[in-house]
Structure formats: structure tokens, C-alpha cells
Write a protein that binds this DNA or RNA. Structure first.
Length: 139
DNA sequence: GCCAACGTTGGC
DNA sequence: GCCAACGTTGGC
């Protein structure tokens, strides 16, 4: 099992919208960056994702699960990029903000900090555990 | 194949 | 609203 972090602008697609889709989930489309798209291609059924809100929120708000592996993104006319399907599992009891992550030196090599423009990234087990602890949820 | 110019993202 | 960082495009 691999852990991921996926970013979204809450005005465009929010945790609440994702949650409202329930177990049937929703397509994670619109990624137009090769590195991010390659990460989508690596996702396997059952992989877990940290759900991160950019914009005014800038916090990890919930945990989601991959329910369909990569397929061509219908919204991409060039046919170069892929989507996956994600369902919301549960919210963090306590949201983990970018500020808190940056404040903690443990996260100095976290892609969220080092590569702020990357929208889909791998999360090491060490960082995953730490964030779950900060978010007061069980793994 | 290099690189300048330009566009986009996202944090501040 | 600004700008740094980075990705993409297109001319050569």
C-alpha cells in the first residue's frame, strides 16, 4: 500500500463534495502536469490519500481511498492525462495546516513543502503516521 | 536539443 | 495582488 497526498482548490472541488459522493466516489480529473499524472498512474486500488485544500484553507482535511485505478481523463482532449476514482473515508478530527507542517522540522523533505506546485505526491509512511497523529485519527 | 519567453500555481 | 518557482512552448 502506498500513501498519497492530493490537492484541490476547495472552490472547485471540496472535501464536502467528495464526502457527499459517498462510497461511489468521484473522478479525480483535471490534473495537467506530467509528474502529478504519473503519480496518478501509480495509484493502486485501496491506496490511501490525504485530502488537501489549497487556497484560503491550506490544510489537510481528510482521508480518501483509491477505488478505481488510472484511466484516460475524459476532460483532457489531448488524451495525455489520466484520472483515478476516489472516495472519502473520514475527516481528520483536527485539520493539519501547512503552517504546522512547515513549523515542524521533521517535514523538511516533504514534497508539500519542497515542491509547492505539485498537486499529487507520494507520502512516506513516516510522514503519513505523523500526520495521522497530528490529525488525531487512527491509521 | 537549447533556451528565452511566457503561462500557471499556490503561498504569502 | 504580488511574485517565486516551475512547467511548457516555440523559434532557432
Amino acid at each position: 500500500m502506498v500513501f498519497w497526498l492530493i490537492k484541490t482548490e476547495p472552490d472547485e472541488w471540496s472535501w464536502n463534495q467528495q464526502k457527499n459522493c459517498g462510497n461511489k466516489g468521484a473522478e479525480w480529473n483535471g490534473v495537467r502536469n506530467f509528474q502529478a499524472s504519473n503519480n496518478l498512474k501509480e495509484m493502486k486500488l485501496g491506496d490511501k490519500c490525504l485530502f488537501y485544500h489549497t487556497g484560503n484553507v491550506k490544510s489537510i482535511v481528510g482521508i480518501a481511498e483509491v477505488i478505481k485505478e488510472a484511466f484516460l481523463d475524459k476532460t483532457d482532449i489531448s488524451g495525455k492525462f489520466v484520472s483515478v476514482k476516489i472516495k472519502a473515508l473520514y475527516p481528520l478530527k483536527k485539520q493539519v495546516s501547512l503552517y504546522e507542517i512547515k513549523k515542524n522540522n521533521v517535514f523538511k523533505d516533504f514534497a508539500l513543502v519542497k515542491q509547492s506546485r505539485l498537486s499529487v505526491m507520494k507520502v512516506s509512511l513516516k510522514y503519513w503516521k505523523k500526520i495521522c497523529k497530528m490529525g488525531k485519527v487512527k491509521i
